[in-house]
Amino acid sequence: MRARLETLGARTLDGIGALGAVAVLALQIVRMGLKPPYRLRRWVDEVLDSGVRSVLIVCLSGATVGASLSLLGYGTLSRFGAEGFLGALVGHALVRELGPVLTALLVAGRAGSAMAAEIASMVQTEQLDGLRMMSIDPVDYVITPKACSMIAVMPLLYGLFVVVALLGALYVGVDLLGVDRGQFLSSLEDALNFREHVAQGLVKALAFGVLVGLIATYRGYTSEPTSAGVSAATTGTVVTASVSILVCNYVITALWGI
């Protein structure tokens, strides 16, 4: 019993310590990001790198999610003869909830884990120590451009995901199930406005971008310099980022209505 309590206590302390360490890293990143040199070139490279890595998987998932939402929604709506509202249903679900959450989960699994693995293997092969010995701060040169790239990547991929998903939904709803194209589009247009829906999706995408960027770089940067350390950083990133995304999503959804 006592041993269990002690383990629980030690775990809790470790957790709080890790949160503090993440906060310190976040502050360093903000400071390095605001201080010249701005390393725009490295940032753009990272945006392209993480973005391009995730484009295919985001498009594929978007198309299938949109298509199956359409199928599901049509089945229910047509019972009430309301299949004209299919556009509204699909749009609501995608823009506010599914779009940002699924995009973030996919990016965390694809680009986030790759980012953590890359940094962890740089730790393992002493590349970051090599930078330090050249009087170059690895947080400035490596971590900051990578973490900040996620903030740009996430909203862009979110937009891509929603557009592809809507196209998928449109194809299944209109071309396969025979919903009127005009009705689909006008109900979609009526149901969504920028302030309530699109802005919420964008804010979520931004927040998730910050989360994934921070978690991936933190796990990589603090990894043990061994092969096991690299794999722990990678899986740790996916698990921690996924859970944080889901929790954060609930919080934003709950707060937005108030």
């Binding site: 740089m122 002493e126 590349q127 120590d129 090599g130 330090r132 010995m133 050249m134 009087s135 701060d137």
Partner: peptide, 19 residues
Amino acid sequence: LFRTREYLGMLFQGGALLD
């Protein structure tokens, strides 16, 4: 420390070149 390290160069065992 970053300033003191300007006196120093270090050759790591694995080279530690940025890959």
